[in-house]
Design a binder for these strands. Sequence first.
DNA 1: TCATGTGAAGCAGTTCACAGCG
DNA 2: CGCTGTGAACTGCTTCACATGA
Lengths: 221, 221
Amino acid sequence: MRASRAAAGGLRLELVSVLTVNRLSVYLRSLRALEARGVRSVSSHQLAEEFNLSASQIRKDLAQFGEFGVRGVGYGVAELAAKISHLLGLDLSRRVVIVGMGNLGTALARYPSFNAESFLVVAGVDSDPGKTGRKVGRVPVHSRRDLARVIAESGATMAILAVPADAAPAAHAELAAAGIRAVLNFAPVSLPSTRTCRVKNLDLRVHLEELAFFLEDGDGS
Amino acid sequence: MRASRAAAGGLRLELVSVLTVNRLSVYLRSLRALEARGVRSVSSHQLAEEFNLSASQIRKDLAQFGEFGVRGVGYGVAELAAKISHLLGLDLSRRVVIVGMGNLGTALARYPSFNAESFLVVAGVDSDPGKTGRKVGRVPVHSRRDLARVIAESGATMAILAVPADAAPAAHAELAAAGIRAVLNFAPVSLPSTRTCRVKNLDLRVHLEELAFFLEDGDGS
DNA sequence: TCATGTGAAGCAGTTCACAGCG
DNA sequence: CGCTGTGAACTGCTTCACATGA
């Protein structure tokens, strides 16, 4: 059985803030760390203290999805972790294709976090014939031209875009047309989300530049 | 001469919003694309239209740093690009060390965006002796134990952290102690910024999980 | 008693609408 | 006239403070 995540409180997933969702991931990470140490119960204040978070924000974030805590006590670590994991849809397994097997695409194909139970990189494609026909870790690399077929045959619903900027828009369009529902885009172009295909743009250069902005000039040459 | 970026309007860099700074990077990217096409002048509305941005937000963002536009006309593409590049501190060159030469660290050492004029990866370190003494692209890999010496000798002021979660806090402390002023942290732990060392936490898994949250359950198994 | 869950307050970020200027 | 630059309105996010309930 796959209980709908929204069903519980009549909540519309689409109107939860991205900021809240990102913090849920962080809460889950933190809870897993406590679990590994054998901690059974934790208060919002303890969580905040140890992991550089805000106690009231933790409570507000969680309250949107139900009442998971016990007043006067705190939250059950394992129960809350399970609940957040379910909210994030991590108790399902999503098949992922990688478009562009350059430096970054290759690293992500081998990246352990992208190959646990919740996500499974099933294939990569690249336009360079020298890269196709091989395997990167467990991931077979196909021709860029076979993208639609690879998606159909693998049943992938998510994609990682790791191609140069000029190749990204066409790849994005093909992914959406082939039924991909979510794209993590590392190319340095802002691709728009549509109703059927959500895009998360993640240009790594932007974040290096953010750091550079706040750095004093004396730190460069 | 290195004119202080804040000097112009008596602006305190520290109180500019991260969101604004990230958008400056995107504006710069967009302007470079126009420049390559030979476009000389552009209005905020044209920029917004073509690159999925907001016209009033572009104007508000830029207005914090001065008056760069011409009323009734728009912005000079090359001039604005130069101005934003200067604001972001990209006309300086920052030396960067990578801690952890696993999948991701290795990919970033070869990543072209991290090795243009503004950023230069000068060295990597890894705790695995099998990885040290080699070169990844142009980047020499040293022993993790030599981190402080590598930083001192290379004059690096920025670092990329690409180690497992449990190794990250110690590495972070060492980086700060060795004089590193900015850290891009890919490890799945939230490291705090201090007054002397700014940290940008960038856990890739968080962003895959964001996409999973908004995906319907039917898209997994 | 103690920590959650929550309305209300406060703050930050975005959009609007138009005055100002080339 | 057209587009920038900007106060004012608005929206959304975070923090506060306390009523609620184990």
